[in-house]
């Protein structure tokens, strides 16, 4: 782990009290100025991973290590979590419709976060709120701060959400599908905002199920399948030469970034396994076109150049 590493998750496992395994080996790392895309199908555990980093998971058993700036997050107490959340690690949620409290003005909610972490007067906090909203491209930010969430469009609300997340200049920003609920043009604008943020030196963890978003806005990528990170590495390397059969299938199912959309995209046959029905070996084996007998044993992590992959095809 070098000095620039912000966040590193090592072999994180989460299980419910009844024994169902939700995450079964998630390893990630993220340095300052990097944007890590976490991709995977619905239910693969992307949000769970993010929630673990925020310490927002209710009673689950966890093992492994989550280190943020060399602090072990899983070991810290509630007060330490509170100081961390919103200040050093901030999160943007998937649905800007419901993420704000509907009964309070947007500006007041952003002010609240600022004043939770910094000793500022109401007026100073509001000044910063308005400045942030302006930087996020909200027209007439002072008036927008006086609006209730339902009075803003989806795109404006997500910008306000980002402004709130950035209000205390966090070192790490986690965005959980920040653009899924928005239309394509707004999505592109939001991605530009996030990219600019990363360029100022913060770390960005961008959760998405869209490889296109990863290609557009990320420097690194981790592919999550059924609670396991099956492949990770720099975006260019993974997109050019995907190693894991699941990554290949995902990329094949992605429409090309430019040029005409093909009439038919190959889909991955079958369904990802439910948390209580995961195979003991490779989790992708039941759907894998290249399945072999030794897939019945969980393959080790293999380093291939800049990439890491969990697959028997590369085990020596």
């Amino acid at each position: 782990m070098d000095a620039e590493t912000l966040l590193s998750i090592e072999d994180l496992r989460l299980a419910l009290p009844d024994g169902r395994v939700l995450l079964d080996g998630v390893s990630l790392s993220l340095a300052r100025g990097e944007a890590l895309g976490v991709v995977g199908e619905s239910g693969s555990g992307k949000s769970l991973t993010a929630m673990t980093v925020m310490g927002l998971l209710p009673d689950v058993r966890s093992s492994g290590a989550v280190r943020f700036r060399a602090r072990d997050l899983l070991m810290q107490d509630a007060r330490a979590w509170r100081r961390l959340r919103g200040k050093e690690i901030a999160m943007i949620f998937q649905d800007p419709m419901t993420a704000f409290l509907p009964v309070r003005r947007v500006g007041a909610q952003i002010d609240e976060q600022i004043r939770l972490h910094e000793k500022l007067s109401r007026r100073e906090a509001r000044a910063r709120t308005v400045r942030l909203l302006g930087e996020m491209g909200v027209p007439d930010p002072a008036a927008a701060a006086e609006r209730f969430p339902h009075q803003l469009s989806g795109g404006l609300r997500q910008r306000a959400m980002i402004a709130m997340a950035l209000s205390c200049a966090p070192a790490l920003l986690i965005a959980d599908e920040p653009t899924t609920a928005l239309d394509v043009t707004v999505q592109a604008q939001i991605l530009v905002l996030l990219t600019r943020l990363r360029e100022t030196g913060a770390g960005l963890m961008l959760i998405t199920h869209d490889m296109g978003v990863v290609a557009q806005a990320c420097t690194h990528v981790a592919v999550l399948y059924a609670g396991v990170v099956v492949e990770r590495g720099p975006v260019r390397a993974v997109l050019d030469a995907p190693l894991h059969p699941y990554t290949r299938a995902l990329l094949a199912a992605m429409p090309p970034l430019d040029g005409p959309r093909p009439a038919h995209l190959p889909a991955i046959a079958g369904q990802p396994p439910a948390p209580d029905a995961r195979p003991p070996g490779c989790v992708f084996a039941p759907r894998c076109p290249q399945v072999r007998p030794d897939c019945a044993i969980r393959p080790p992590v293999v380093r291939m150049g800049e990439q890491e992959v969990v697959c028997v095809l590369y085990a020596s």
Partner: peptide, 15 residues
């Protein structure tokens, strides 16, 4: 259980 409460926690608000 609502999202808005999760946001409040993520902001660093105490119980």
């Amino acid at each position: 259980g609502e999202d808005a409460i999760r946001t409040a926690r993520a902001k660093g608000a105490g119980p």
